[in-house]
Design a binder for these strands. Sequence first.
DNA 1: CTGAAAGCGCTTACAG
DNA 2: CTGAAAGCGCTTACAG
Lengths: 378, 378
Amino acid sequence: MKTISPGGRTDLTKQKATSFDIAHLAGVSQSTVSRALRNSPLVKAETIELVHKIARQLNYKVDKHASSLRSQQSATLALLLFEDPTSDDSLINPFFHAMLGSITRACAKQGYDLLISFQQLSDNWTGDFADSHKADGLILLGYGDAIDYQPKLKQLEEQGTPFVRWGPQMESTCGIAVGCNNLQGGFDATAHLLERGHRRIAFIGTASNHYPEFFQRYQGYVKAQVQAGVAIDPSLQQDAITNEEAGYQATLTLLERVNDLHAIFAASDLIAIGAMQALKERGYRVPDDIAVVGFDDIPVARFCTPALTTVRQDTRLAGEALVSSLIKQITGQPTAPATIDTRLVVRDSCGEVLGARCEFLDPKSQSRGNRNYVLGSK
Amino acid sequence: MKTISPGGRTDLTKQKATSFDIAHLAGVSQSTVSRALRNSPLVKAETIELVHKIARQLNYKVDKHASSLRSQQSATLALLLFEDPTSDDSLINPFFHAMLGSITRACAKQGYDLLISFQQLSDNWTGDFADSHKADGLILLGYGDAIDYQPKLKQLEEQGTPFVRWGPQMESTCGIAVGCNNLQGGFDATAHLLERGHRRIAFIGTASNHYPEFFQRYQGYVKAQVQAGVAIDPSLQQDAITNEEAGYQATLTLLERVNDLHAIFAASDLIAIGAMQALKERGYRVPDDIAVVGFDDIPVARFCTPALTTVRQDTRLAGEALVSSLIKQITGQPTAPATIDTRLVVRDSCGEVLGARCEFLDPKSQSRGNRNYVLGSK
DNA sequence: CTGAAAGCGCTTACAG
DNA sequence: CTGAAAGCGCTTACAG
């Protein structure tokens, strides 16, 4: 059975329309159609309008492969996620989920398509994405051990593949990074604990250049204490990578070594969750006996018991900064590393806050009700 | 400064190698190179080997656009996520995060690239992805109101765009669906509550053909009660869409209407979380006064207090089934709707389970320790 | 088993 | 402001 398209054209052939079809119908050359579709200032306004109208009638869309092949750019970015051990099946650090949404939206806004894959699925990102022209550039989310990771970045840089990564900008490191202000976040979290009278504050998370984000948070932790005149006790730091189990084990180890603990600053929310579990099992009440602060404000944080006080990173800004920095590299514009502000989100894990009210009832306003104090960093 | 490539070739030009370069070096024609790279049985084994060796030396990768343009297929799928109102910035239903990981992995395994976007970002998916040859087919995750959604599916079908969607297969509906066994899941959840002696069990979630997944869960809820000889009281059902606030409000409404409630079966974990919040605020203890079961087993479920008993969907299988069904459609193989089994994950929200042990300490084995009973569906 | 040739559907100098 | 022509880098009949 024939179908009649909106434009009145009899649609017998399921053939996809080409720019030549439009040229024919519009009575202009195919070159002109191509220019008109891209709204070239070289083309008369009425011609542009006519071409667009016919294109719409024919359901015409520019063939991505033909245009990319000719113009030698794909208008596509590749998001390479680091596969973490996680408690669910996703193998994606929950913090990155929010990033993923904002990166997707930022790409769409800028007219780029987004390819998604896992870093571990390939040992040659340039080959798999740039050399084959699948993507014009790469966004790297997550990395495991920063030192082990270096060679991969070096390789990308040598091969001239545009890329941007989420994380701290280090001198020793390649490429452009967009990251949050870990130092400030760590400072704010620790200052909050100090203000509440805690003095023996532990840091759980690996504080070394293998985990530079954690290291910066640790430096914020140190800075706040120094500023408050509290002596730094190295035995209060305990290594852990970012998952619940590591946080749990590290806390047990810490509790065996230290017996006058006031508070824990966990380098991530996942670590904090593991820490709270360990504290409960050892008979400590949070926050009455030991207060806990996390970092990231992943969705679980507000539903823990007690709800976790933590440091929020602005994932919307972060995603936009990553995408725009990468596009600038691709298009040859100058771009610099960016740092996104953090803010402390106060919930219940550091002490009672009166008039607690459920957070999800008004997600727009973080400060509505009495429970969520959002303290911006200075 | 010159760099010498591993193959010993002086790499003065940053020019990307083409199949002609390989042909020249191998002393064969470009056609032969093309065939050799795809391991065509038409080519002599030693020629294949030689071509691959040279390709490796030159860091050669087949140009995706050139090959896709010529062969008229992109070897790319597009994952279209439905943008939900969520409590974090991601706007992605947390249940879909795990799906995303498994879909990404399944695509890679099958040699397909994966494009990701939001459904709301376009009102013409065929045009934006299929007509432009960006993707050979679409995976649809989430949909809002199923009745409002129909026209979109109808349009895809009419336009001949291959697609697959996560959700229940209905007669009235277009295309191939892959979904979980909602009926069985609803049955198991309700049976679990019945076994624990509860009789006045509420269902929170919109049970209509606008939300067919919820409706099927509701039917499982009805079936279990009928089977147990419990009369169905329609006043125990309360509409809610799948977020915490809706669950919270629905529960408050329900509590005003019903005063002898034993238990709540929430149509999703997000609803269950909102429900538990409402119960707490009204002074009910979970599970002592009122038991709660959810559905989905999102990561938050295990960290709620009490930890949420819920129905888990196997996201790894689901992702694989979605991808393989779509690829079958694309390649013209027959494919049928698939249903993935569910299983009940027993935690603390329906009553004390002795010897509670922390779940994340052994994520592989859900039944280790005494806390997580995993009951397979029959 | 191999090669010469056509052509996928565009964009973009080049010429007017 | 417009058109004729070249060519992006492949795959795939076609001929041998």
